Simulated assay, not measured.
Amino acid sequence: MTTTTSPAASSAIRERSRSRPGDGRSARRRRSAAQWLFIAPAVLYMLAFFGYPLIRNVTMSFQDYSVATYFTGEAPFTGLDNWRAVFADELFGASLWHTLLFTLGSLAGQFTIGMALALFFSRRFPLSGVLRSLLLLPWLIPMVVAGTVWRRVLDEETGVANEILRGLQLTSANIPWLSSPDAALISVILVNIWIGIPFNMVILYGGLQEIPADVREAAVIDGAGPVRAFFGVVLPMLRPVVTVVLVLGFMSTVKILDLILALTNGGPAHATETLGTHTYQLSFLQLDFGQGAVVGNVLILVSMVFAVIYLRANRDGFTEGR
């Protein structure tokens, strides 16, 4: 049996078939517009509060930007003069070196002690939750408050630290924790380690909870001791979490300003001067905003490098999880 289609019906079918691709493109455009509408507030926020200040900071580093600029409105371009002046300054090199020591020392101490505590609390025992909560207190205290308290604790004459050491007969003389160029940077690093331990412990503890118990049991059955099981089984499985912890720790430590200002104000004799404090000194004490912007841009570049590492580590960790 055969059916025939009238010319009018055939024309209507062809019109509908021709209209379908257009309808699909129109629907995709509507979806795309809706997606952009949803993310537009976030994009505008990023451009206004991050993009514009970043561009202004880069521009300022090529200008003679001083207090007079606020009155005259003139900030003539000086090319690379600000950059040359900053890189030729011995204090910039010292600040860069101190930043490296401060960051690496803080990360090493925070991660090592945080991992030890995470392993300790991975085995449940009475009051473990209460102890974990108490260990979060250093992380919750504002940096300025922590710095002020520790400055009193480490005071050479009246500090509690020296009182305890003398009481235990570990030293007979007061230790100049914050007033000696040789000890100040170490003291600041120790205080920052104390502050950062809870963050490392919490993140690493969460990562340890995701490792199946039967994996550890299998390692023990195969004859692996605690140390071998940790480095051969636990640590490789924690690699994505460890990477994120270290990169986030680096990005938060490399730019620390308030803690150092509260403890030593960059002294004594610039012994604790870092890129963050150097930027503060140039911009707000010497009022040389152009050179301060240069140091700030260097700090931003360093942070951006490790931000890329963090994003890539997150992507790799997500891929492995899938």
Rank of each mutant, 00 (worst) to 15 (best):
L37Q: 11
Y310M: 05
G114I: 02
R312F: 09
N297V: 07
A173C: 08
G290I: 01
L135M: 15
Y52D: 04
F71V: 05
A88M: 07
L165D: 10
G249S: 11
L263P: 00
L134T: 13
L208R: 05
S172Q: 11
L204R: 01
R18M: 13
S66Q: 13
I300Q: 06
T274V: 06
Y310R: 02
Y70P: 01
D214P: 07
A33Y: 05
I195Y: 03
V294K: 02
G105M: 09
T5S: 14
F50D: 11
S106E: 06
A27T: 14
A213R: 09
G129M: 08
A229N: 08
A293S: 14
V305C: 12
M1H: 09
A94R: 02
G232L: 10
A94Y: 02
A108R: 11
F111D: 00
L238D: 00
A40R: 08
Y280P: 00
G93A: 10
L275R: 01
P7S: 15
A118Y: 00
L91C: 03
R166C: 09
L107P: 00
F77R: 09
G109C: 12
L208G: 06
P268D: 10
R31I: 10
S187M: 12
L44Q: 11
E15P: 06
L168F: 11
Y310V: 02
G207E: 01
L54R: 01
E320L: 07
G321N: 07
L301M: 14
V234F: 03
N265Q: 12
G267S: 13
F50T: 09
S179V: 10
Q291K: 07
F231M: 08
A229T: 11
L282W: 00
E273T: 06
A271C: 11
Y70I: 05
H98Y: 06
R239N: 08
S17M: 11
R152V: 06
G51A: 10
L131G: 08
V43K: 12
G22R: 15
G196V: 01
L261T: 01
V295T: 06
G129S: 15
I39T: 14
Q169D: 12
Y280Q: 04
I256G: 02
T112N: 07
A118S: 08
G159W: 06
R20Y: 15
L91E: 01
S283P: 04
Q110S: 07
P236C: 11
T3S: 14
G24D: 14
G22V: 10
L136F: 09
I39S: 13
N265M: 04
N82W: 02
L96N: 01
V215Q: 13
L259N: 02
M237Y: 05
I197G: 02
